[in-house]
Structures are given as C-alpha cells and as structure tokens.
Design a protein around this nucleic acid. Sequence first.
DNA 1: TCAAGCATTAAGGCGTAACTTAATGTGGGC
DNA 2: GCCCACATTAAGTTACGCCTTAATGCTTGA
Lengths: 300, 300
Amino acid sequence: MLDASDLRFVTALSAAPSLAAAARNLGVTPPAVSQRLALLEDRLGLRLMDRGRGHLRLTAEGAYLVNRAKDILNDVASLADEMSARAGRIEGPLHVIAPFGFGRLRVAPVLARFGDENPELHPTLNLSEDPVGAMSDGLWDVLIHVGRLPDLRITQRKLAPNRRVLVASASYINRAGLLQSPEDLSTHRIGVVRENRADASLWPLTGPDGIATNLRVRPVFDCNDGEVLRAWALEGFGIVERSEWSVSADLRAGKLVRVLPEWSLPDADIVALLNPRAVRSLRIDKFVERLGSEISAPAG
Amino acid sequence: MLDASDLRFVTALSAAPSLAAAARNLGVTPPAVSQRLALLEDRLGLRLMDRGRGHLRLTAEGAYLVNRAKDILNDVASLADEMSARAGRIEGPLHVIAPFGFGRLRVAPVLARFGDENPELHPTLNLSEDPVGAMSDGLWDVLIHVGRLPDLRITQRKLAPNRRVLVASASYINRAGLLQSPEDLSTHRIGVVRENRADASLWPLTGPDGIATNLRVRPVFDCNDGEVLRAWALEGFGIVERSEWSVSADLRAGKLVRVLPEWSLPDADIVALLNPRAVRSLRIDKFVERLGSEISAPAG
DNA sequence: TCAAGCATTAAGGCGTAACTTAATGTGGGC
DNA sequence: GCCCACATTAAGTTACGCCTTAATGCTTGA
C-alpha cells in the first residue's frame, strides 16, 4: 500500500508551487510526476491536490497525508542514521552554516576533504553574512562561528582559540603615522566586518595595565566578507580588526603590521553550534571533530 | 536507504525460527530470503542476525532495527488505514476470532460475503475452543463471543440478544422420562460445551418464581464445538444447553424439545470485543456493523 | 553413517515501477 | 491572437528489484 517512496513523493510535491516545479526539483519530466500522482490518488481513492487556477493546493486529505508522512519519514531517517552510526558509516545530508570569510577559507576545504573521504555524504555549505539569521531559515545541522554568539540557548562548542588584532599595511602606517593610544584611532581610516547585524563599531579594548575601555570607532569602509576587509587592509585602505587566523601569514610576511599591539581585544574563539532540533548523527559528530582538529593545527 | 519493504522484511524474519521458515511464511524460496538479508546487511554494514547453531538469533543491532521497524510500520499502517477510511474503502487485513460453532455457522458466512464485496480485504478467521486464549496468541482485531466474558477490561459490544435453553430430542425424553424440576437432571445424561476453560457444569437456573439456583450437573459427554453437541442431542444422546440461535429451527421442526421450559438460564448475548491495541479502522467497524445486523435478523 | 533441514552462492529470468517522448488542451498575461 | 507555462494522456522503454533454479556445504539427530 503506502510506501516510503510514496511519502517522499508527496512531501516533495507539497514543497513546490506546481507539479512542473516539483518535477524540476526531482529531476524528472512533468508527466512522470503527473502520472505518478494520478496513480497514487487512484490507489487511495482520494484527491490529494487541486491543480486548478495555476496553483497547486493540497486538499484536506493531501495535507493530512503530508503531515503524517513527514513524521514517518523523520522516523525512517532517524533509524537510518542510527543504523549508520552503529556501523560507523558516514553518509547522508550534512548542512553547515558558516560566515563568508572563515567559511570559504577554512570550513569549505575541510568539508570538501571530508566529503571526498565519505562519498555517501551529501554536504551543503551555506555561507552567510548573517549566520544566525540563516539558522532560522530552515535546514541546518552545524553552524560554525568566529566568536561566541551572545544570548543563544544553544551550546557553543569551542573548536579553537582565536585572537582578534588590529592591523594595517606598513604603507598605510607610513603614510598616516604611528598610533600611540586608542584615541588616535579617531583620526584614522577604519574598516569593519558587517556580520550578524552586530555593532561592529564598538571595540572593547584592554590596555597594558589591564584596564578595559569601550572605544567607539567610525568605520569608513565595511564589507560582509572578512577576507575582503583583509585585502583592503593589504591595499592600504586603513586599519581593520581581524582574527589572528586571517592575518597571521600576512603579519609574518610583513605585509601587515600590528596596530596598538600592546592593546588587546577579547578573544573570538571558533565555535560550533549543533542544531538541537537536528537528529544527532555520526556524520555531524565526525565532521565537527575533524574541523576542530584541522583548525587547531598550526596554519599552513 | 531504508524502505518500508526492508522494515517489513526484517520484522517477518524476526518472527520466524529460521530463514527457511521465514521463507515459507513469505511464500518464497530460501535463497530469496538469504540473499535479501545479505544485501541488506551489506548496505547497512551491520550483522543483523546470527545464523549459527541451528537457531536464528537477532544481533543487538538487528533487535534494535526490528523494534524501531515495528513502530514505523504501525505508523505507516495507521496512515494507510486513515487514508482508506477517508476514501470509504474497505481493505487490508481483518483478524477475527470466534468460537467453533457460532464462528463456523454464523460468523464465517458473513465474513465470506463481506470479503466478496470488498476484494481488497484480507480476512483471517480463527475458530477456537478457547477464544480468550487465542486473544493472547497475537494478532486479532475482533473477537466474537456467545455470552459476555467476565473479568475482561475490554468493552464488549452487544451484537444481538441470545437466550440459552435446555433441549433434548423427543425420543430421548420419551425414553428417559419427563423432568419436573432441576433436581431431576441428576438422573439424566447431560452434555456440555467445553469452551474457554469455563466451568460448564455449573448451570445458574432461575425458576418460575424468580428464585435463582446454581445447579451442579455431571456431564457424560462434551465437545469443544457447540454444533457437535447439538447433533448429539438430535441423536438422542441426552440433554444439552444450547443457545437459542443454535436450536431454534430444530425446536420449530419438533426435532428437539425444550427441557424444563419454565426455568431459564442467563442470557448469553452475542458480543463483539475490539482489540484495544489494534488500529481502529473502517474495515473493522464496517464488519462488526454488518455482523450485528445479520445476526439480529430473524434466522433463516 | 546417513538423512533431513538449513544456509549460501552463482547464474538466469521476468514483471513492473519509473520513467521517457510526443502530442494535446487549458489558462493567463501581454 | 499569440506565447508561455502548466497539466494530462498515450504509448513505449528500461533498469532493477525480486525472485527462481541448481548446486554445494554444514549441522544435527537417529
């Protein structure tokens, strides 16, 4: 009678605005969808979807079936994951969210290698200016973030420590002059990363005497991709705050210099958040473990 | 990955003592089962069953899978039933338990007609000397019984009223003599139905003055099929207690006569018990409804 | 030791579910 | 009216899941 493939079929249909769109999503032709739905409706003796007036609408019976189908399919997936975990197999979908810069440069390579080693794994990487916002957009298993996120009820597992530093190119400093104290920043060109709708212009600095002060800066350039900001700093656009992982090679190469090196900013640990609503599965655990070990390793 | 047919397969295996027995139950050859199980184990990367030492045993992983599979398959069946009910379709398995005599003569014909009218219905009729015991043997949806069952927490829906009477053939009475009171029974040949391990030798009689007395009889012949007992009464073996439905035609035809007609026995209503653990479905409701209406109709 | 039952492997077969292509009709927007 | 997107029908194709048969080996009980 009803089979899991039927249930998957109707849930796929219910997520599309039309049968044709569903066919495209499923990678088949419209008659395949049209005929299969008709066969299923015939077997059940029920109309599941109304196709009139250019819109695909679920009937009451169709909606009921889809709701129940989702629960059952979740159970089936959960069972498949459990069996997979018991076998130590790493397979299935893995949805990762990460910020633009760190995501592209540090998460993506690890994910690619991890996926290469586990061909049955289906990774999805969502790079976002607003990783926290992306969380509420639907499907995610792991969110990787630079710096702990405040006011979240989700456990944030530290993958690696990470310091934040102020840097600029040597040419910019030669041109604009050395800084002696944070107050000097007000006369400089400042660039910030636009991320998570956070207030990027408030820099909590701690001096060599251990006294903390919140400095309000006025950014003259910003971008939602941290690596673009680094490139701009290299171009001599001004002073930027970056994570150490981002600029360590540049500092060593002398392309960038520390600004106010005796002042420090709060650490911004690399953290992983696990979706409490997602099924805990081996692939998630193994990926996070792998990412942590690769990020903690000395940068190449 | 995992599909409902896989889940059905492993649950069928888990219910059998060997792969060969499971094959027989499924109506296929042993290699079909052996190969399919091997393929599933290969896909999962897990050993599900140990075949050693002449016994089929579930591994821990296999047991876990089967337990989860049962839950999921119940959900799927429940959903299928719900969709079926919404469409007003009568289909799927229907497991009925009934006593030998009543089951064969009154339940089976109705069930056969009901099944004829609904080709997608798969009826199973289990006639048992011990209907209550059969309940605990596994799979049942409806139990039909003559007389209410005591000490059961299951709702017993009355399908039809039914009186119990003492009868014997005219030739037996001519030979053995008329009875004037219940005490006369002690000098007569008594036959009883052996059913449900009940004490069939205790007859709770109520006299014309309304006073009840429990009479202990000593049966000299018994059978677990009530209709055999009727036949024996017709043969002149002795006095039997029967339900009215069983002997009404014989009484009208004069083949049997009432014994102590001014005394009565408690009614033994025809009742239907629904398995509270079974999914409530349209086919069960419709069958019980049909059975009730056919049993209540004047006997043909 | 022998027979019976069971499990497995290799090779082959077949039915059907899941498509495809081609054609047609409908509805909406311009 | 034309075009586009969508839905449906008819007919054909094919891959694969689910077997089968034949053969072999193992275990157990008499």
